[in-house]
């Protein structure tokens, strides 16, 4: 069945698409969720709900449902780190029953990079195989083991890509498989170096990828030089150039650095808007949801 979510409709259209991100904390009183939900207005097509990227928080499925009840369309993120194919598909069936329409498939940060480095992982299947599994659930109405699914599924399925993954040939090979598996949208890791991002987009275009999937460039509003350095040192998928960190530091005190971070983000968004083949941006606001509005205002969106 064709996906009918708000994000799916936007992808079928021509408008510049904006998605954002919500990182459910380890909080069960709902206040944190309400505050976050209030940060997302109509300009945001949908909000990704992260699946425990840095440690344990409210489950992405539960938080997606809660966000949906608060009037925000969720993109249910699901990582292959913590669940085997039984649990993944079971949760996906549950997500359909709960009205979830968008799903983003990832392998997820290795548990060594989370607050629980001692835990075991699963990695029964990888993100490409998960995208393919979601696609089979949807178009063939069957699970990986061949079990027939009763009822129709209309997920909009997406995955992620790192524009800075080298070598480029390997990067595009991986991206092509994600698209072939059925990813209808691709959200990227944070873009700072727009020139290199453009080279990646051109290479993707060489494989006709932007014609098959909606690419949304990640934009990360940095709040300080220290934060940028910490991210760069901890996560190898973050490519934050020295110039960005120097610019943040040169801005002065905390408030000035945060302001500069928004200015940098806004400049990047303006540059990205001119990228041929790019359908929109994905604001990597996880944990800093209140910055979304400020960033969009700074970018004049």
């Amino acid at each position: 069945m064709k996906p009918t979510s708000r994000l799916a409709t936007k992808i079928d259209g021509k408008d510049f698409i904006i998605t954002a991100e919500y990182l459910p904390p380890a909080a069960v009183n709902g206040a944190a969720m309400d505050a976050a939900a209030g940060s997302f207005d109509d300009r945001i097509a949908a909000v990704n709900v992260a699946d425990n990227p840095h440690g344990i928080g409210v489950s992405s499925l539960a938080a997606s449902v809660m966000l949906s009840r608060a009037g925000v369309e969720p993109v249910y993120q699901i990582v292959t780190r913590d669940r085997n194919r039984i649990a993944l598909q079971s949760d996906l069936l549950g997500a359909v029953c709960l009205g979830i329409q968008n799903v983003l498939c990832l392998s997820g940060y290795h548990q060594a990079l989370t607050g629980c480095p001692e835990s075991a992982h699963v990695y029964d299947i990888d993100s490409v195989q998960l995208v393919a599994a979601v696609n089979a659930m949807q178009h063939e109405q069957r699970l990986i083991d061949g079990t027939e699914i009763k009822g129709e599924i209309s997920f909009l399925t997406g995955s992620v890509a790192n524009p800075y993954l080298e070598p480029l040939e390997l990067n595009i090979l991986r991206l092509t498989k994600k698209v072939q598996a059925g990813s209808r949208f691709i959200q990227t890791q944070a873009v700072f170096d727009t020139e290199r991002f453009d080279q990646w987009l051109s290479a993707a275009d060489g494989e006709a990828i932007p014609a098959m999937t909606a690419i949304l460039a990640g934009v990360l509003p940095l709040t300080s030089a220290d934060e940028a350095e910490r991210l760069r040192e901890t996560y190898t998928d973050h490519h934050i150039p020295d110039e960005v960190i120097q610019r943040l530091r040169a801005a002065g005190d905390g408030a000035s650095q945060a302001k500069e971070g928004l200015a940098i983000g806004a400049e990047i968004i303006r540059k990205l808007k001119n990228c041929k083949g790019l359908r929109g941006i994905h604001i990597l606001s996880g944990g800093k949801e209140s910055l979304v509005g400020d960033l969009l205002a700074a970018a004049g969106l």
Partner: peptide, 30 residues
């Protein structure tokens, strides 16, 4: 991560996402 379809987003030519002293298997495979 036992990935069978390509590297994860944290792959670098000289290292794995998890540890700086470990090569990324997918860089070697490629």
């Amino acid at each position: 991560k036992h990935l069978l379809n390509g590297p994860c987003g944290g792959s670098r030519p000289d290292r794995c996402e998890v540890r700086p002293d470990r090569e990324c298997a997918w860089q070697l495979i490629y």
